[in-house]
Nucleic acid binder design. Structure first.
Lengths: 184, 184
DNA sequence: CGGCTAAAGCAAAGTGCTTTGCGTTAAGCT
DNA sequence: AGCTTAACGCAAAGCACTTTGCTTTAGCCG
């Protein structure tokens, strides 16, 4: 039989407190300075609880990042607008507190975990983009390849956020999308 | 008076042994699993020595990465060929053992150090690219902006290496460069 | 060659993350 | 309401990295 769970009152409160503590600490100190004892103290829970429920910092950051991520914009079928919206959303997702921190943590995590985290991250992006392209393709348009969207839109945004290149804002994101769209 | 240094025999041997140990361990376990005690043991030197000479893992990785990096190819003035060569070299640099590990370490390092390391990394790339563009510009050609080279060539390569996207080889790197070149 | 001292080695203490065993609390269910 | 037990708290032990004071080794220079 399946072990019965207890998501009710207390567990939910602990989870909320821990999540909040993680985002706060990531903003204040950066993802690499976030330790489980620090999170536990800020959340006013026992470190043992965090160790037993989440096990490691990468796992905890992953959960928090996933919980905070807003879904990507729904494609409308207008390829130009959809690409722009997707680019803008991607940048917003990376720029939000903890967004890039999550990415940093994944990049730095140990081999097995890293592969899992990065692969999932890439797969989600690919799926979203494919949906967007399919929608436009269904409307009878010529669409760029997935790989081009990644190279021309997604990669520059990640690169610019990681390197903190100034001027990387929503307008820039839209510009990347429209430059690709114009060529198709 | 300036403190006299002793780069001779023993220090040089220790440095070489430590460098070799770092690259070996990075290859075997990944950058995040490399600790100073582990490096010291592999290099058959005392951990204290590593702590006193390098202080931290990021600093040590930075030195090793810098020491191993081969210089970028000299620009010939042929923009298409130079861009392709630069793209290929960048990919080779990232792909070599420890290349991306160094990047990963920088990305994950704490705030102050990270900024310094990433900024220097970006600055070096920018300088190299500018030199390449200037050379072509001097030959009277129309050249793309630095920012376009970064977005279209450098960023995709970093992104693909970090995410381990298959098919990211020398031919792909050249393809990125030539796609940009064709537009100009 | 012989002195000076930078650089390496050694050992012990310090620090902070992590694990473990056990008692306590409070969901969920009848 | 009362029982069961998942989930949390607590405290002590474990472990690994890091620091520190001192000793020993071996470049460099006169």
């Amino acid at each position: 039989m399946a072990t019965t769970r207890r998501p009710g009152g207390r567990s939910a409160r602990v989870q909320a407190a821990v999540h909040r503590a993680v985002t706060d600490l990531v903003c204040e100190r950066g993802a690499d300075q976030v330790t489980i004892p620090a999170v536990a103290e800020r959340a006013e829970v026992n470190p043992t609880t965090v160790y037993r429920r989440w096990g490691s910092i990468p796992a905890l950051l992953a959960e928090v990042a996933a919980a905070e991520e807003s879904g990507p914009p729904a494609p409308t079928g207008d390829l130009g607008a959809d690409l722009a919206a997707y680019a803008e959303w991607t940048l917003a997702d990376l720029s939000r507190p903890g967004g890039i921190a999550f990415f940093r943590a994944e990049v730095a995590a140990d081999v097995d975990e890293r592969r899992a985290g990065l692969r999932e991250c890439l797969k989600r992006s690919s799926t979203t983009i494919e949906a967007l392209l399919d929608r436009a393709r269904g409307a009878g348009h010529e669409v760029p390849a997935l790989t081009d969207v990644i190279d021309r839109v997604v990669a520059p945004l990640y690169f610019r956020v990681v390197f903190s290149i100034p001027g990387t804002d929503a307008a820039y994101a839209r510009g990347l999308a429209s430059a690709l769209h114009r060529e198709a």
